[in-house]
Design a protein around this nucleic acid. Structure first.
Length: 418
RNA sequence: GUGGGUGUAGCUCAGCUGGUAGAGCACUGGGUUGUGGCCUCAGUGGUCGUGGGUUCAAGUCCCAUCACUCACCCCA
């Protein structure tokens, strides 16, 4: 094969696109009553937007971005995530002047150069929603309730909401000190990766899957013990909203996010059914980001859902039967074929799904094709029927046939099919 | 970047210790000269991922390479 899509980039074929559409439609339907508006930022941005926003030391920026110089030598990057772009647009168009609180969502492709595996692609798609300009915790709860609502209208089972607070930068200073001291004691018990992490990014040790490290981590100090008064109250209040609205969650003080901009509330919605790429949604608060990117000091919270991962779950849960034509029109002979072409297209203009053959075929072959297409009824019009001024309408399930006059054909068919 | 697994027809796969490629499904046509599904008969379709090597002979053995895939890592 001379050409194939490049590694990690996939064609989404008919049969899958239906599920994609169902997911996107559900998202728009669920978001609307919450007052979320769609925003569609470009997928190419200046590299610095991401390096400054996401953090230079994150894996995403350090080794996963599709970055290249444009013809003038400016660093360009295919977006690895959407939040930075949404925040950029919020600042650029001074949306905060209309109303500091902006509820925005966007749906589209993201790009990260990672080794592909189950649930992970180099071009993948996300549904993102952000509430900009509100410090929470009511907005935190509102956002989480909204995602959980979307997931439950999709009928997905076996999902768990993991919740944590990373505190503010001030809380983390104390916590990191204590954690470093703890990890330094236990360094012999850690795997080689974690010894390195203990130096560079100690929070990541919490994510390690090596048994020995898990043990070390289970005894490790928890960030939650280091929250200051405000952060503690914020987190407590969020939990109360969720409890009142009966949203089940699991406190997970080891939940760490891979982007530097998060603070306070973080959450992840996980499934057990997708192998190791188990996060279908991740999000959290990023109160410092708007300012870091040159805007006013506005707080914000958001989430990202992985469309491919959700689609896979939806397909496992229910294989949906695809839609089928309402009518198939079989013409026989040159004269009738021209008439059929006109009738078929007029019916389509009124919204009825009508199929027909392109190449001339015998009636048997046309019936076979009609059957394969799943058409509910077949209208047969040959020279005999043209002569007699009436076509034959066959019901494919009951096998009943009846004559329909060709005068006023469209009205009759609309009634028969409706 | 590091490991493991797999590449044979459009799809799912078989092919034992090397002997020159098969099944089911799908597709086309006949049995029904203008009536689908079931049945039946026939047909189309493959440089066995690619390149090299061993051999009288390679889908099968060896080497290399590519692709896909799962896992590590990271994350949606």
């Amino acid at each position: 094969m001379e050409f194939a899509s490049i590694k990690g980039f996939k064609d989404i074929l008919p049969g899958e696109t239906e599920t994609w559409q169902r997911l996107e439609a559900a998202a728009r339907r669920v978001f609307r009553p919450y007052g979320f508006k769609e925003i569609k930022p470009p997928i190419l941005e200046r590299t610095e937007l991401f390096s400054r926003g996401i953090g230079l030391d994150t894996d995403i920026v350090a080794k996963e971005m599709y970055s290249f110089p444009d013809s003038k030598g400016n660093g360009m990057t295919l977006r690895p995530e959407a939040t930075a772009s949404v925040v950029r647009a919020y600042i650029q168009h001074k949306l905060y002047k209309l109303d500091p609180v902006q509820k925005l969502y966007t749906i589209g492709p993201m790009f990260r150069h990672e080794r592909p595996q189950k649930g992970r692609f180099r071009q993948f798609h996300q549904i993102n929603a952000e509430i900009l300009g509100d410090p929470g915790p009511k907005s935190d709860a509102d956002l989480i309730v909204m995602v959980m609502g979307l997931l439950s209208t999709l009928g997905l089972k076996g999902l768990s909401l993991q919740l944590n607070s990373l505190g503010c930068p001030q809380c983390r200073v104390q916590f990191k000190k204590t954690l470093n001291r703890y990890l330094a004691q236990k360094t012999d018990a850690l795997c080689s990766d974690c010894r390195r992490r203990a130096e560079t990014n100690p929070l990541r040790v919490f994510d390690c899957k090596v048994e020995a490290c898990k043990e070390v981590v289970s005894e490790a100090p928890s960030i939650l013990e280091f929250l200051d008064e405000d952060c503690r109250h914020h987190f407590r209040s969020l939990q109360e909203y969720l409890e009142d609205y009966k949203v089940p969650f699991i406190l997970n003080h080891r939940l760490v996010r891979g982007l530097d901009y998060y603070n306070r509330t973080t959450f992840e919605i996980q499934t057990e059914r997708l192998g190791s790429q188990n996060a279908v949604t991740g999000g959290g608060r990023y109160d410092g980001l708007v300012k870091i990117l040159g805007g006013p000091d506005q707080p914000a919270i958001g989430f990202a859902m992985g469309i491919e991962r959700l689609v896979e779950l939806m397909e496992e849960d229910q294989e949906q039967e695809s839609e089928t034509p309402d009518l198939f029109v079989a013409g026989l002979g040159a004269k009738s074929e021209r008439k059929v072409f006109n009738w078929v297209n007029e019916l389509r203009q009124s919204g009825i799904w009508v199929d027909m053959v392109y190449a001339p075929k015998g009636l048997k072959a046309q019936m076979k094709q009609a059957d394969r297409s799943g058409a509910k009824k077949v209208l047969i019009i040959g020279d005999n029927e043209l002569e007699a001024g009436k076509g034959v309408l066959r019901d494919m399930t009951t096998k009943e046939q009846k004559d329909v006059p060709l005068d006023n054909l469209l009205e009759t068919l609309k009634k028969e099919i409706g």
